[in-house]
Nucleic acid binder design. Structure first.
Lengths: 135, 135
DNA sequence: ATCATTGTATTATGTAAGCAATACAAGATC
DNA sequence: GATCTTGTATTGCTTACATAATACAATGAT
């Protein structure tokens, strides 16, 4: 499991770990039931305090991405779980509400927003020359 | 100009001021050219340090919502100003990029995102029974 | 039972954010 | 030109956040 952390690109270490594991799961590079490295092991590899990884794993558990089996390790959870999906949609919905509120302030219409979303999507998925950081 | 701040609902005071003034402008309750209360006056009314209001006004200026005339006061700026618009679009673009990144993590397609945006737009613009807080 | 391995909890430290106290700078007004 | 009113700048305090050092708890393997 290759995870790199960029020392202080502003994003906290624990979040970098969370994001990259989320990405690995979304991309199918980590499948349901698979065991994540133990906290200490990953911490050692990244030269980081175990607590930092523990926090990342905790967030991932709250997000429904992984399950912890007390003394037996941490495992990728069954992703299709409806709760997980509902949770995820809730997050997206919140973000979208924020976006629409902002657009309202700015007197930008729904059509313009939709157009902009498509536009940005193209930009992001075309120029794949960016670093793997901004997952 | 009625502005209320809710002591510690988690949102910083200066942001509450920013949001409410943004809202007043968007709603047409404050029009271009109109003068905002002086920093000290508003600070006094809200029982807050002048610096806090100064910060709010600074953010509003950076957002292109208001203009400061040094010793003459702070005025609602001409909203259509191209620079302001460009700035505003940049903010929207950033939010959209965030949204798309998140959607990517969650294995939610562009189409689903677009659909969700329209859906939320309807919801927001239909039930207008919400409090004026979440602007 | 013992011990290695797993996640957990407690505590401390450095940094940044939010806010306030207070002094400053400069145009407006008389 | 004195002074009132406007925004500005400097500084310090308090709190929250991110990370680390270190000790604890619980389970599986021997």
């Amino acid at each position: 499991m290759q995870i790199h952390i960029t020392a202080s690109d502003g994003v906290p270490i624990y979040l970098q770990v969370v994001n990259q594991i989320k990405y690995l799961v979304a991309a199918g590079r980590l499948v349901a039931g698979e065991e994540l490295p133990p906290i200490r092991t990953l911490a050692e590899k990244l030269v980081v305090n175990p607590n930092t990884i523990a926090r990342a794993y905790r967030e991932l558990e709250m997000a429904g991405i992984v399950e912890k089996r007390r003394t037996a390790g941490t495992y990728v959870s069954d992703q299709g779980s409806p709760l997980a999906r509902r949770e995820r949609m809730k997050i997206l919905t919140d973000r979208i509400d924020q976006l629409l509120a902002e657009a309202g302030h700015m007197d930008v219409s729904l059509d313009e927003v939709l157009k902009l979303v498509q536009q940005r999507y193209s930009v992001i998925h075309t120029s794949r020359l960016k670093d793997a950081n901004d997952v």
